[in-house]
Structure formats: C-alpha cells, structure tokens
C-alpha cells in the first residue's frame, strides 16, 4: 500500500503547487498573453510594478492594516488563551465558542453584518473598519496558536516563581512570557498574513483607499494587466512563504528551547 499512496501523495502535492508554480514562469515571460509557449525572459513586469502609485498606496495601506490587526488580534488572543488554559469559570465553553465563531462563519456574513451596523451608525468606512473585521477573523487563529503555547506550559513553573518570592505579575513576566514568546511571534505572523491576504471583508469595509487584494481585484478585469498581476503575485507568494518559514522557525526554536518534542505544524 505504501508505494501507490506515495505516488498519489506526490501527484497531490503537484496539484497543490501547480498554480503557484506558474506565477514566476509568466511573471518573467516576455508576452502579454498568459499561455505557452513562453516568449523569452523579461524583468519588465516587475519594473512596471514600481511605477504604479496606486499600487504603492494599496501596499502601504495593507501593511498598516495588517500590522495593527496582527497586534490587536494577538493581544486579544493572549488574554483569551490564558483564560482558557489556566482558569476554570462557568460558561467558559460558550464564551470561547462565541470568540472562535468567525472560524466557522462564511466571511461574507461577517462582512455584511459589520457593514450593516457601521452604516446604520452612520460611521464612515476606512482603514480602521477593515482592521475591526480583520481582528475579528484573525483572533480565533491567534487563540488556536497561543492555546497550544500556553498548554505546553507546566503550571508549576509559575508556582515555582511565586514560591521563590516573585509576585504574580513578575512571575508572568519572568517565566510565562518568555516561554510563550515563540507562540506570540507565530501568532503575530499568522494574523499578519491573514489580514494581508483577506479580500471579502476588505472589499466590503474599505473606504476610498483600497487594500492590496482589493486593488488587485480591480486590476483582474483588465487582460493587459495580467503579466503585472503575475509579477505582483510572485512577490506576494514569496513574502507569505518567507513569513511562514519565520513563524515555523520561531515555533520550532521555542519548542527546542523548552526541550519539547516537535509535534508538527500550525493549527
């Protein structure tokens, strides 16, 4: 059974990566039509990226939103994960269920429901409304990551710190925080990536300044823009992979530092 499964697994990975593999191929192809055969190598499409002010504005806007969303989601995640892993309180299941709900809610629902409320309150849309939505959907991911970070923590470590004379807060700062730091970094990176890639909520809640995915969406209608989009996509995928690799590295280093067994990836 092992051999056919292995062949299947490799084919499946091919299926997973095939579309992404096309990105660099056509990003460097000297032709406006995305089709084989290739027509030669060019840096043109990347050069063009540098000359679109609207794109730069969108990138900056997205980065700003992603950084703020990642920080807020991780802060909320730390609070919720700490409460969930360390304390027993009535109604915990329901409360955590509500906070984790966006994980199992179609994003369009989150988007329209927020839109309705914002419009009813007469608030104008803008970067901060997108941040509100992104924090909402990124927090459950942050909690999932931080939960395992907090769970891996021997409870008697904090007690030992208290026993040795530290207060509750200083033992959190001296013992707990350093030990969950890899989880926090991991959570920041994941939340950042989610916000950076998110389209639907940004599409509904963005004001006059589009985020990068919203800008990209607008460009997708124009066939002559395709090669530029491929170039941009190449950069985005590289950036995502880089961020993920850093997150994974942080997680593994954290596991190694505390002497845990490596129990495998995210989520």
């Amino acid at each position: 059974m092992k051999r056919p499964l292995r062949v299947y697994a490799i084919l499946y990975l091919g299926f997973l990566y095939a579309p992404i593999a096309l990105l660099p191929v056509f990003a460097f192809n000297d032709g406006t039509v995305i089709a084989f055969p290739l027509r030669g190598f060019t840096w043109d499409w990347f050069r063009q990226l540098a000359e679109i002010p609207a794109l730069h504005a969108a990138v900056l806007n997205s980065l700003k939103i992603a950084v703020i969303s990642a920080i807020l989601a991780t802060c909320l995640g730390v609070l919720a994960a700490r409460a969930a892993t360390r304390f027993a309180f009535p109604g915990k299941k329901g409360i955590m269920g509500l906070i984790m709900l966006p994980l199992v809610l179609p994003e369009i629902i989150v988007a329209v429901s927020l839109l309705v409320v914002l419009l009813q309150l007469g608030l104008s849309l803008g970067a901060w409304t997108v941040i509100m939505g992104h924090v909402l959907i990124a927090t459950p991911f942050a909690i999932a990551i931080l939960n395992s970070a907090f769970q891996g923590l021997d409870r008697s470590l904090e007690e030992a710190a208290v026993d040795l004379g530290e207060t509750k807060w200083s033992s959190f700062r001296l013992v707990t925080l350093p030990l969950v730091m890899p989880g926090i970094i991991s959570s920041l990176l994941i939340a950042f990536t989610i916000s950076l890639d998110e389209f639907i909520i940004a599409f509904f809640l963005t004001g006059t300044e589009p985020t990068l995915p919203v800008y990209l969406w607008g460009q997708m209608r124009f066939p002559q823009r395709l090669p530029v989009i491929m170039a941009l996509g190449t950069i985005l995928v590289l950036a995502s992979v880089l961020l993920l690799a850093i997150a994974e590295y942080a997680r593994r280093r954290g596991a190694a530092r505390t002497g845990q067994k490596d129990a495998g990836g995210f989520l």
Binding site: E159, V162, D163, L179
Partner: peptide, 27 residues
C-alpha cells in the same frame, strides 16, 4: 506564597526551561 518562609521542590521540578542552571538556582 511569595512571602512565606517556605520553599518547594515540585513534583515536576519546575525547572525554568528558558534559563540556565545558574539562572534557575539564582532565580
């Protein structure tokens, strides 16, 4: 607990994994 004249050796030992031996002992 932090102001009692007692100290404890925990069942799991609760050695701080992010600190060296000396940092643990001097905690």
């Amino acid at each position: 607990a932090n102001r009692r004249p007692t100290n404890m050796v925990f069942q799991s030992y609760a050695i701080f994994p992010h600190l060296s031996v000396a940092e643990n002992v001097g905690f």
